[in-house]
């Protein structure tokens, strides 16, 4: 019998994978991928909670999250392309203009 806990554990594993990616990767594109992982992990969590409580709000939330992910990708990729045009690299370490 699969319970909510199973799903939430899965969510946690995926989420920490995403965080590892966010922290670890220096390729900006990979950063975007990792963000997608984070969002998807949360989506699973929402859908699971929705199922086990018999409440549709969770699914609606997932739906909106997908919409946000889509727009994030659109804008983010646009910016990334722009940055690549300027600097010729998508290395994160090249982005250090705000050094204190």
């Amino acid at each position: 019998m699969i319970t909510l806990t199973h799903y939430l554990t899965l969510t946690g594993i995926l989420f920490s994978l995403g965080i590892v990616g966010v922290l670890r990767r220096k390729n900006l594109l990979m950063l975007f991928f990792s963000t997608e992982i984070l969002l998807n992990a949360v989506n699973i969590g929402f859908a699971a909670v929705s199922k086990y409580y018999g409440d549709l709000s969770g699914q609606i939330f997932s739906f909106f999250i997908i919409a946000i992910a889509a727009s994030e990708v659109a804008v983010g990729l646009g910016l990334l392309v722009l940055w690549y045009k300027r600097s010729g690299t998508i290395d994160l370490d090249s982005l250090q203009m705000m050094k204190g």
Binding site: L23, L92, D93, G100
Partner: peptide, 17 residues
């Protein structure tokens, strides 16, 4: 703590986490 403010996105993300 000035070193925290490296301007590197990875570091900032790390601090955020």
């Amino acid at each position: 703590s000035r070193k925290m403010q490296s301007g590197n996105l990875s570091d900032m993300l790390r601090w955020m986490i």
